[in-house]
Design a protein around this nucleic acid. Structure first.
Lengths: 198, 198, 198, 198
DNA sequence: TCCTAAGCGAGACGGTACGTCTTGTCTTCCA
DNA sequence: TGGAAGACAAGACGTACCGTCTCGCTTAGGA
């Protein structure tokens, strides 16, 4: 029935994360996952097509959750009253799901997941950017800025989790801000100055 | 004979890059590689332990080549006469070895390669940074700046190659400079100002 | 399930015997056996370690069966009422399992199987001999008589099957008797005569 | 370079016999043979097509030698003056070439060699038999007698060499005679008696 | 409360790829 | 110029996983 099914899937997800952190994703076999989850190998296939589907499903659920949280910040009533900025939310979410983020960002997963994630973030950054300044006002292409910030973000979160750097999510978000948002502002101003002052 | 061996290995490397771009690294079999390289499967194992060793060897050789080129820029006589900056060299090298960089940066390879590469670049950035400013003068930890720049760099090169964005290596390097090096300078100055002017 | 397993093994045994007769044991590959038995090569290894184990198992089962049949003849109640002699049983068994005996006795199998079988029969003959006459009464060593009869037996069965010589098992046993058992009797008598009549 | 060639071949033959006795024929590789013979593997193929050809050549030379020796015994002048009987020659030859006979008769060689050898001897026996008695006078088919004696002979020689039984070749031949030739004589007489005395 | 459909364990099976081993050929180098 | 060294193609080996498939057992949830 339903409860058993949910329970079984949760066991599989837990086993996956544990094992990926222990010995990497590629080296993992379905047999090992089901052994860890204390079930028969055939049972695995009742729930997921293969190892990859289990992984992607698990990751996707988390990314979706993060997306929802960030989107909530932009509801009409909260948009202009200085609510928590997205980067703070993201760093907090990463701290809450440390293991899962580690798996997702660090080394074990086929790089395509990372690429996809990076492009997804880049697109988001880009669309927000468009709200703030017309493309012509930017000293570099918007898409490139998107990649710049997304790449930096993923690298920094990955580094933070991997080295257990002793900063709170809010401190991380603040420093991140110094490295990305603020320079964008200066850059735009500087560029405008250079153009108007020949 | 040495020549036969070198030739054989070159065929294998070429076949690998072609095939990874065509259908991804994971889905690739040794049989397919040797078919493409027109040799027996057993011959493959005379040269490489497995698919991964062939890949890593190939990538490493390229990274080493890049490293050497950049190091040459810092020879005593060239250091202070405004020689080509490292980022220009890197973008040019990427353009020269487009396929290989695509394979290395985009999606198909087990993320650990990317992680390693990012940490390697980050360490380099950090060590150069140390020559320019004491840690205390920085508004964020040097290690974080390293990750910031390395992550940005890889994301941008990856984007550039993948979308065939119409910029020359030199233009890319210049824009990259605006996004990373220049802001670092401003940041430092700004930070100093804030500290000395309460 | 037990039935599937038994069925699979039987298919493999049948395929083996057919193929050994067709093209010899050495030239045979596991792939050919499983092709003939209509199953995957991997399945073979679920049941047998290698080609040799399949062969030896198959042969052993038959030899064991023969041994059992012969032993049954020597049960207390049947011993003295002139039951079928062992050689008749053996020839009948060979006729019943013609293909298998052909494989076992003729040419294709690593000679060690034959050697072993010959020594086994020789030991049996020797132990029966001991019941009939003390060693001292024999004109040649008992072990040698064992080898003599065993070697003769195997050669004759092999010849019978290979040339399709038109004799019934019972006729074969009778002729075999003339060539081996009867002479032994005469030999013993003659020897005794020679010793007591100088 | 005839001498070198002969020397090389002799080394290979010696290496083969040593190694077959040490670890069996099947388990042997060409590499091992040439290692033992202190030469390159490729050199092997300059002299023999494969492992089997080396073996068969080696065995054939010995069998031919024995055949020649026995044939010499039947030269016109020696035929009727009670010269050494063939079985004595055979046992002596076996004693002289112990290792080679061991290899040939015992267990390591693909049984087809043994079968062939047995049929060869059987044919010889049969042809001699024909000189002594018409087929009709025999209580069992001549071919069967041939197999009987050949099988017995091979078994006994094999046993003699393998167990190092302490009998001289001449003693062996004499005992062999008691087990085979003599009974044939009695059998014929007995049969004739049974037929003429109803 | 029982019964029945599901979830599940066990494991045979076909299939694909692996990395290893041996064979026989061929080419290059060396004495 | 013949033999050593060793690269190479070919192909079988035994192993490891995969995804599919029965077959029973158990176990909840609706009758």
């Amino acid at each position: 029935m339903d409860k058993r099914k949910q329970r079984t899937r949760q066991y599989l997800r837990d086993a996956l994360l544990e094992l990926v952190l222990e010995k990497g994703y590629d080296a993992l076999t379905v047999q090992e996952i089901t052994d860890r989850a204390r079930m028969g190998r055939a049972t695995f296939y009742l729930h997921y097509k293969d190892k990859e589907e289990l992984l992607l499903t698990t990751l996707k659920e988390t990314v979706d959750e993060l997306t929802v949280r960030i989107r909530q910040m932009f509801s009409p009533e909260q948009l202009f009253n200085g609510s928590t900025p997205p980067s703070v939310i993201a760093f907090r979410h990463a701290a809450e799901n440390k293991n899962l983020y580690r798996v997702m960002l660090n080394s074990q997963i086929t790089g395509s997941v990372l690429s996809e994630l990076r492009n997804l973030i880049a697109a988001d950054v880009q669309s927000q950017l468009r709200l703030l300044a017309p493309d012509a006002a930017l000293p570099v292409p918007a898409a490139m800025i998107g990649q710049h910030i997304a790449g930096s973000m993923l690298a920094i979160v990955s580094w933070w989790l991997e080295t257990d750097a002793p900063y709170t999510p809010d401190e991380m978000a603040q420093m991140m801000n110094k490295l990305t948002a603020q320079p964008m502002l200066w850059l735009t101003l500087h560029d405008k100055m250079m153009k108007t002052m020949p």
